[in-house]
Design a protein around this nucleic acid. Structure first.
Length: 273
DNA sequence: CTTATTCCCTGATTGC
DNA sequence: TGCAATCAGGGAATAA
């Protein structure tokens, strides 16, 4: 599932491929069914009117959102949710294409999304798409003090807190589990029980796990592909995620899987307290 | 304000 | 073997 490292990898691919390009055509496959159209917030005609003829002047990422900044002043916002991908012709064909963009140099980009959770918006501001997002965890704005504040007095599990996009933007299930392992913290621990030393460790572990993901081009456990249709390699470097029953790399104890906040959660019962 | 639950969707997996 | 039930999960919406 695309989280910050995966979405950032895609952003880099889009920037390389689309900067300065003008959208010349948009195709929405006719079999795309209601009631969940890929275009959000306006009808297809208005969306088409707004994007065709517009030039891409920048590609940015905020949390798990991508934005193509258009010369019209609007932005085309994209969220991939669970199974979305932005693919170019060298990627293998698939039958889950929900939208196809053509650019003035002949480039074709398709928005593929098996589970149809993803979406496209045409807006002036990102705030029209999403409620307030927390700081970018790899920016200087993500301070230890801010993390301490996020967990202070909270009865929610640590994992749920760091998954909350309003607290920190971009962490998903993979990196939440990896960060908790890196910090030696049981993901079920309530936020309010964390001490100063643990907050410090968690802050560092969040950043380290996300940077590892970036270094490996993202994690492809199932659906994630970059713009070229290639998998990342972070799945081969995770310490706990989807390693249920396998020995912890540190202490050999079998990794356990439980549910936290409705999400599958993997941890080492000995290393994480 | 908080926390918990539901919903969307479909291929893969599990259970009988 | 076959078919039904369950699972996976981002995040908005809703409930409590």
């Amino acid at each position: 599932m695309p989280e910050l490292p995966e979405v950032e990898t895609i952003r880099q691919g889009l920037e390389r491929r689309l900067m300065g390009r003008t959208i010349t055509a948009l195709r929405i496959p006719p079999d795309y069914g209601r009631p969940v159209p890929v275009i959000k917030g306006m009808d297809e005609a208005a969306f088409r009117e707004g994007v065709v003829g517009a030039r891409v002047e920048g590609v940015t990422r905020r949390g798990k959102y991508l934005a193509l900044h258009l010369d019209s002043g609007s932005m085309l916002v994209i969220h991939l949710r669970m199974t979305g991908a932005l693919l170019f012709p060298e990627a293998p064909e698939d039958r889950f294409v929900r939208a196809m963009f053509t650019f003035d140099d002949g480039t074709e980009m398709r928005f593929s999304d098996l589970r149809k959770f993803g979406g496209l918006w045409l807006v002036d501001e990102l705030s029209q798409v999403t409620t307030d997002l927390g700081p970018e965890p790899l920016s200087e704005g993500f301070t230890e003090a801010l993390l301490a504040e996020a967990v202070a007095g909270r009865k929610a599990p640590v994992k749920s807190i760091i998954l909350d996009q309003r607290r920190i933007a971009g962490i998903g299930n993979i990196y939440a589990d990896e960060a908790c392992f890196g910090a030696g913290i049981d993901p079920r621990r309530l936020g309010m029980t964390l001490g100063e030393v643990e907050v410090h460790a968690l802050h560092g572990a969040i950043r380290a796990s996300l940077m590892a993901g970036l270094d490996h081009g993202g994690a492809s456990f199932r659906d994630y592909r970059n713009t070229g249709g290639n998998v990342g390699s972070m799945q081969m470097h995770v310490k706990v995620f989807r390693r249920t029953g396998k020995p912890c790399y540190v202490c050999k104890t079998p990794i356990e899987r439980v549910k936290v906040g409705g999400r599958s959660t993997h941890f080492c019962p000995k290393c994480q307290r």
